[in-house]
Structures are given as C-alpha cells and as structure tokens.
Amino acid sequence: MNRLVEPLLALAATALLVLAAWAVPWLKFVLTIALAKGLAVLGILLLLRAGQVSFGHSMFMALGAYTVAFLAPQVPEALLLLPLAVLFSAVAGLLIGLFVVRYRDIFFSMLNLALCMVFYSVLEKFYAITKGTDGIRVTPITIAGQEPGRETQEWLIFGLALVLAVGSGLLVRAYLASPMGRALAGIKTRETRLEFIGVPARRVLLFAYVLSAVMGGCGGALLAMTTRHVTPLLSYWTASGELVFILILGGAGSALGPFLGAAAYELVRVYAAALVADAWQMILGGVLLAVILFAPQGLWGIVAGRLRGRA
C-alpha cells in the first residue's frame, strides 16, 4: 500500500469526526472518549507488535486520570496537566516496565493484570486520599489560560484529543518503521537472534512499554477532563479488558485501528444502550464475535482489504 494512504485516511477520518461532532453535538462527548481510549489502545498495539498482550494497561489510563483529578485544584490548566500526566505515566511505565519486560507471553499479560488490580485496590482502599469508590470530581480547568463556556470547552478538549490522536498515530507509525520498531517486532519471532546481532531485547521492549504507558496516561488525562469525574473503576481489570477488546475490534495492522475500534465501540455502546438498555453488552459481544469470525484483522483489516482490492 502507498505510504500516503494511511495519513490521507487519517485526515479523512479527522474531518469526518469533526463533521459528526458538529452535526450531532452530544456525539462530541462520545467521540472525545473514543479518542482518549484509542490513545491507550494505541499503546497496547505497540506491545502487541512484540507479541505481548498487556491485560493491565488501564492502570496507566487511571494514573493519567487521577493525576488530573489530584492536581487540577493546584494546576487548573489543561496544557500543564497533560504534560504532568505524561511525566507520571512515563515514570510509572519505566518502573513497572523494568520489572515486566523480563517476562513474556502469559506471564507478561498476567503480571500487568495483577499490577493493574493492585493499583485499583490502592485507589479504592485509601479513602482519605482517593475518596475510594466515590471517586474524585475534577475541578474546573482552563485551557491555554482561557475559561470558555461549556460548549467551547467541549470543542477545545475534543480538538486536543484529535491533535494528540493524530500526533501519536504518526509517531507510532514512524517508530514502528524505525530500527527500534522493527527490532520490537523481532521480539515476537526471534528474540534470541536480537541478542546475537547485539541488540538488547529487553531495552527495546522497555522503550515500547514506556511509550505505551505514556499513551495510556495521555488517554486517561483526556478522559478525566471530559468526564470530569474519576473512579477506581478506571483501573479495574474489565477496563483493561475493554482496551484489548477495542484493539481486536479495530485491528492491530495500523495505527488507525485503535481509533477505528474505539469509535465503533463507543458508538455501538451508546446506540445499543439507547435501543435495548439491558442487552447492550450482548450486542457488543455479538459484534466482537462477528469481527473475530469474519474479520480477524479487525475493522482496519476490512478497510485495508478494500483498499488493496481497488489498487
């Protein structure tokens, strides 16, 4: 496929999202959430390129979200809170990464899951600090020093999410085509050979892990700014499972997959919940089953297949 196809598709998708948010105002909220989760899923995609599945990545999303919730009273500025969330998730990613990159496959997955649940318990039990399951309301924040009305604020956060999504997508694309990115993919097929050409495989995976933690943190920060309320459920294992679900739905073949998956997931969820309030999870499950059976490369796989067919 032509190297320009994906950026052009991303451009078209961006325009489509803006159009949808403009035509149906309440969709702005849903789509911002989708972009935020898409960012976290993009992080999981990186690790999947090394053949590793993180079943605990929502801990970084929760970390980013709680960073915003904790610091918003002192630093009520979105453009400062985001870098702070990035910083904290990078440090956490590095510390946790140093430990988990020593493990592979099911052990890697389960260790992430375990640490994610530990973080959930911490958030839930330390009521004095975290307000437990009640969660924390995010105090009002400014964006670039402005205190706009609600409508404008929603647009600004939506725009911020779009910029971060497109930026991260391009970054991931460049990274995956770089020597480090190709070495990362080498971990999946021949990790020992990496060592015998002089490449420290663990360090390659650690870099990807920190990057993926940062994307999770970024997504979480956006989530907190959008929903204005954070709870420990962000770090519950089902939240991590949801991110993996979205990746399978969207497809791991392209940086567009996670966002495609997240948008589809959130939209199906909203409309299914509106149509049949009690059965929306069943509908989501049905969608995933259909994707696994008929489009194992996810929604992106369908798009890519169409493009190839035309070329």
Binding site: L171, A174, Y175, A177, S178, P179, M180, G181, R182, A183, L194, I197, G198, V199, V204, F207
Partner: peptide, 14 residues
Amino acid sequence: AARTGLWSPLARLL
C-alpha cells in the same frame, strides 16, 4: 542497524 545505530525511534530502518 544493530551495528551502526539502533536507537533512533524516528528514522526509518530502510
């Protein structure tokens, strides 16, 4: 690349 410089996350391998 492993010999000449692997740690460039944005330069293309090829």
